[in-house]
């Protein structure tokens, strides 16, 4: 705890601080030691399995990892681009759906039904089916110009993930206390302004962890566009596997997906902590 400058601390407080520091050190030590112990046990358990030698060769081969890395990284760049556009698409479409579902009044009933029917349908459909329908079915209609597979893949992801994200956003908007709406309308803000300036910002904060969840989940599913023939990280790994008969490229691709998800997760943790500090004063229990 900080002290106003110029004050000295009593012996009692010094002892309390020393005790708390000691406790902190002890619990840090306990968690560090137990982590190491668990890691060692798991490691020894895996290494001593009868098939470890062959698994190591076919999944963790340094040479294959090194040679396949450039192609996979290049493929990952496609994933990142798809992710970028899909995120924007989802943000726009999901907000639109969520707002429609929160509209009150009989006039909007058909729209509401349409939106809720849409979310029901696309939350139920497996992503892979949507990918096939959009990626192979829609081009087969013959009315669209020839577009690369990743464009259809992006569209399929937007369709699927908007359904999930719109429900999360709706939950967030409905968790904003009605008094906030009253206060905004009483200031003369229109319904749309109230939504945009008061309800949505608060709603999004309430559901940030769930949104990040969906984002990371979509980031992984971006890898599914490979089934349409797009040469992304997963496809590149697959090509390497087919030539080397070694599964290491899959492991590399998997690790790369984890690595690109980390910065966002840390960023949102930090944002949330900052928001808590800014909007609340004093202790939390």
């Amino acid at each position: 705890m900080t002290q106003p400058s110029g004050t000295t601390v009593s012996a009692v407080e010094r002892e309390r601080r020393a005790y708390r520091r000691g406790r902190q050190r002890r619990s840090a030590l306990v968690s560090a030691v137990s982590t190491v112990v668990v890691a060692v046990i798991v490691w020894l358990g895996v290494v001593n399995t009868p098939g470890w030698a062959s698994v190591q060769k076919s999944f963790f081969d340094p040479h294959t990892a090194f040679t396949s890395f450039p192609a996979i990284l290049l493929g990952l760049w496609l994933n990142v681009r798809v992710l970028f556009f899909a995120s924007i698409g989802v943000a726009v479409f999901a907000t639109f759906l969520a707002v429609i579902r929160t509209l009150r009044g009989a006039v909007f009933a058909p729209l509401r039904w349409l939106a809720s029917g849409y979310t029901d349908l696309f939350r139920g459909l497996p992503v892979i089916i949507v990918l096939y329908l959009v990626g192979f079915g829609v081009p087969a209609l013959g009315v669209f110009p020839r577009l690369p597979a990743e464009v259809w893949g992006t569209l399929a992801l937007i369709l699927t993930y908007s359904a999930y994200v719109s429900e999360v956003l709706r939950a967030g908007m409905e968790a904003v206390h009605p008094s906030q709406r009253l206060a905004a309308r009483s200031l003369g803000l229109s319904h749309a302004q109230t939504l945009r300036l008061v309800v949505l910002p608060q709603g999004v904060r309430k559901v940030t962890p769930a949104l990040v969840n969906d984002f990371v989940s979509m980031q992984k599913d971006v890898g599914l566009i490979s089934i349409l023939g797009a040469v992304d990280a997963v496809r590149s790994a697959q090509i390497d596997v087919a030539t080397t008969y070694n599964f290491t490229p899959y492991v590399i691709a998997g690790l790369l997906f984890v690595v690109i998800s980390l910065p966002l997760i840390r960023l949102t943790d930090w944002l949330e902590a900052r928001q808590r500090r800014r909007e609340q004063i004093g202790g939390t229990v």
């Binding site: 705890m1 601390v9 009593s10 004093g282």
Partner: peptide
């Protein structure tokens, strides 16, 4: 004890 005091008892 909803706030941790900085000094005193």
């Amino acid at each position: 004890l909803l706030e941790q005091v900085d000094d005193g008892q």
